[in-house]
């Protein structure tokens, strides 16, 4: 199935999505890598407010290439980064901020899958490295926070327009496309590959 959704996302819309579905996203989203995840959690833990209410928004694992033209930021290239690095933060991040969609590449683990199920959220993937294609769907830089972390690690606030195709890789039933893949790959390793090189 193919869906066109707007942020802030509603729980009932997100709960309809299933692994393998394609989504095109419009509205506000933020970029956040390790350092920005860390800062969000630290700020919230010390009782401070975030620069933006993230409830229902999407968080994109991405460190963009940007340039400033006539005082305005332009996104040049902005494909996803490896999501696994955010696994240790994500469940708590989702719980504390209320984001309903994580966008990245390469898959995420069981803690994120459990949080998606409990909170009504999804993890989707964008084709890794397809940075110019991604930039096309990122219409405007609304703001940027925390540039002290460096350009890739800063929190970019983006207005998306038909950003995608995003493939749902963890849905709100907890189904995990990449966990299934891992099982398949391990099976192939044991049954097809090892015997050919003399291992049982």
């Amino acid at each position: 199935m193919e869906y066109h959704l707007n942020t802030p996302l509603k729980e009932k819309d997100v709960r309809k999505l299933r692994i393998g579905d394609i989504v095109y996203l419009s509205g506000l989203m933020i970029t956040a890598r390790d350092a920005a995840h860390n800062r969000v959690l630290k700020l919230l833990a010390s009782g401070e407010k975030l620069p933006l209410d993230l409830n229902g928004l999407a968080v994109y694992h991405c460190g963009p290439v940007v340039r400033k033209l006539n005082g305005e930021w332009e996104i040049v290239a902005a494909g996803p980064t490896t999501s696994a690095r955010m696994e240790s933060y994500e469940a708590e991040f989702m719980e504390k901020t209320g984001v309903r969609m994580i966008i990245g590449k390469g898959g995420m683990g069981s803690r994120t899958a459990e949080a998606c199920k409990r909170l009504g959220a999804v993890y989707t993937i964008f084709t890794g490295g397809a940075a110019v294609l991604a930039a096309r769907g990122m219409k405007r830089v609304v703001d940027v926070k925390w540039l002290d972390l460096g350009v890739p690690e800063a929190m970019w606030i983006i207005e998306a327009e038909n950003f995608g195709p995003l493939m749902v890789a963890i849905d709100s039933t907890g189904a995990n496309f990449y966990a299934d893949l891992k099982r398949r790959v391990d099976k192939n390793l044991m049954e097809k590959v090892y015997p050919k090189i003399g291992f049982k």
Binding site: C62, G63, P64, V65, V76, A77, A78, G79, T81, T127, G129, A130, A131, V132, L133, A134, A135, R136, P165
Partner: peptide
């Protein structure tokens, strides 16, 4: 679909003289 997205991306990058991937 993934390979088509990759190839489309490479075409756009070359045409617009932009980095193929944001991680340069």
């Amino acid at each position: 679909a993934q390979l088509n997205a990759i190839l489309e991306n490479c075409k756009l990058a070359e045409r617009e003289s932009k980095p193929i991937c944001q991680d340069t």
